[in-house]
Amino acid sequence: MHHEPATPAEKDPAGPYKMRLGIWMFVFYSLFYASFVAINLLSPLTMAAIVFAGLNLATVYGFALIVVALIEALIYDGMCRKKEAEFAAKEKQKGGKSQKGEG
């Protein structure tokens, strides 16, 4: 029984780096999200405090949770691309050297 992916996955030398980075970013966001839930549970009236342009903390924090998710996602993508490019350049260099050696 074949059980390979729908499209063959290439070896990804940046994989461990991306996984570590992802976990740290996940932890950061989880803490941000957990703080929001905690404020609601422990001090719900704090959420009514007006913090910006007539908007209360509940609204601003809610929007921030959405916007920060996107910003983190973009940072993560940027860092992953950079690392992937680094490894791709190294691979290319290796390929070039071995070709020279062969020649």
Binding site: G22, A69, Y76
Partner: peptide, 27 residues
């Protein structure tokens, strides 16, 4: 609106933890 916040936050788990490893594993 709490549902909106929670539904969106869930994508963080999908992106940082699940997306790439799952793509490599599955068919």
């Amino acid at each position: 609106f709490l549902y909106s916040i929670g539904y969106l936050a869930g994508w963080i788990v999908a992106l940082f933890v699940v997306a790439e490893p799952l793509k490599r594993l599955g068919k």
